[in-house]
Design a protein around this nucleic acid. Structure first.
Lengths: 227, 227
DNA sequence: GACCTGTTTCTTGTATGCAAATTAGTCCTG
DNA sequence: CAGGACTAATTTGCATACAAGAAACAGGTC
């Protein structure tokens, strides 16, 4: 938002290793590369029309981000996520978000507060329209606004990193219509607590909000993964 | 603990890139490589008697861990930490630790509880002796025991990762004698809250405990960094 | 027939070489 | 003398080549 130089996001121009990293991230997120899939360096190099060197660098970066598991001299596989681990990640995100909203409540500037209120107001028509992608986009903005309002850059970075890491594994789904309006209602409750300056209350409501989303996903996984 | 094969930890045998990564991590942590120092690939390669390839991989991993900042085609420098950022990191650790101890209070098994009590008892003579290294070691065990008692593997990993990241920047210092006994007193208060099953109380006390440590470090930085 | 062992093959890890890009150094110009 | 542009040198990014380890396979033995 602040840095508006690049025409789009990143692709095509720049470092090959970055292009490969982004492409692999997207493919893992989209599910094109299934969890547990072996990542052959030469094969990937051929596919991207590059040599193994940038592929290796991309894989290392992905491994550092937790998307890929790398065993020495045995190559890499797309990180295999157990339902337990996904729940652990969701709980962690929920707790971190709860921390963020508490700090944000006590520290946000009037400008940040009005920006958040504005965002929240904008979400009403989106939730009513049922446009999941649009709501997803709004939702990310809403939460990231809160991260930054903590005035703790490191915490904000961590929150975004973990959130992205989780996003990469939720595939395309979690698109149950009724969840949208409930999500907005929960945001509403959080906004009210923020408005009252009650960080603890906002924190508890945020935690509940995130855990509701987790439960929703959990049900989806349960339903779609028989094994 | 479970895997007790290696004679020591890691060094000398195994992947060269890992050896370089570990060595650089240690040197950054020890302050041998000052913050902002340029990291020339060829120079490091020569120093470690290797080629640039493993050096590059090591640098990427360090960059992912936040110890090194890498700008495209401009090489890497040891991450420059502003006092603000260090405080942000400390606050983040404090909040995460607070989350951990709350969850741990509600979820720890009797075995984990007795292990923690045992550890805490052991710390009394260490704190009295004033052996900072020994107390440091105990302290790490104490906190990591709490992480694992959350029964959330992902959260525990995150907590350890952030804690390590912070450790790498505190140089050799923070060795003021009086801090030891105060630290143990604070642990005592946390243990009491855990014993009473009051996770919220334990959480608040843990947060205060960590912020005290941060303030202590902050004072040190203020005193030793004139610029 | 099952299991162990030696060999082969494939993959990763490392080294070296080359090209592009950035930086610094110098020369010229205002 | 200051500022800018061109050139040269250093450094990163990538490609290719080689070596070492691991997995797969075949053969033989119990």
């Amino acid at each position: 938002m602040a840095s508006g130089f690049e025409t789009e996001d990143d692709d095509d121009r720049g470092l090959i290793s970055d292009r490969i990293r982004n492409a692999l991230t997207d493919e893992i997120a989209a599910g094109t590369l299934a969890a547990g899939a072996a990542l052959d360096e030469q094969q990937l190099a051929d596919r991207f029309g590059a040599s193994r060197t940038p592929v290796r660098e991309a894989l290392r970066q992905l491994a550092a981000g937790g998307l890929v598991e790398l065993r020495a001299r045995r190559g890499g596989v797309v990180a295999r996520m157990t339902p337990e681990r996904i729940m652990d990640m969701f709980e962690t995100v929920a707790e971190i978000e709860a921390v963020c909203v508490r700090l944000a409540t006590y520290r946000m500037t009037p400008l940040e507060r009005s920006r958040l209120i504005e965002l929240h107001e904008l979400s009403r028509p989106i939730a009513e329209s049922g446009d999941v992608d649009a709501y997803d986009n709004f939702n990310r903005q809403f939460h990231e606004t809160i991260y930054h309002a903590t005035h703790n850059g490191f915490l904000a970075e961590q929150a975004i990193a973990i959130r992205n890491r989780l996003n990469a594994f939720r595939r395309t789904q979690l698109r149950q219509g009724e969840r949208l309006s409930r999500s907005r209602d929960e945001h509403e409750a959080i906004m009210q607590a923020i408005a009252e300056g009650d960080g603890e209350m906002a924190s508890r409501r945020m935690r509940a909000h995130m855990l509701n989303a987790a439960t929703s996903l959990s049900r989806f996984i349960e339903a779609n993964k028989p094994a």
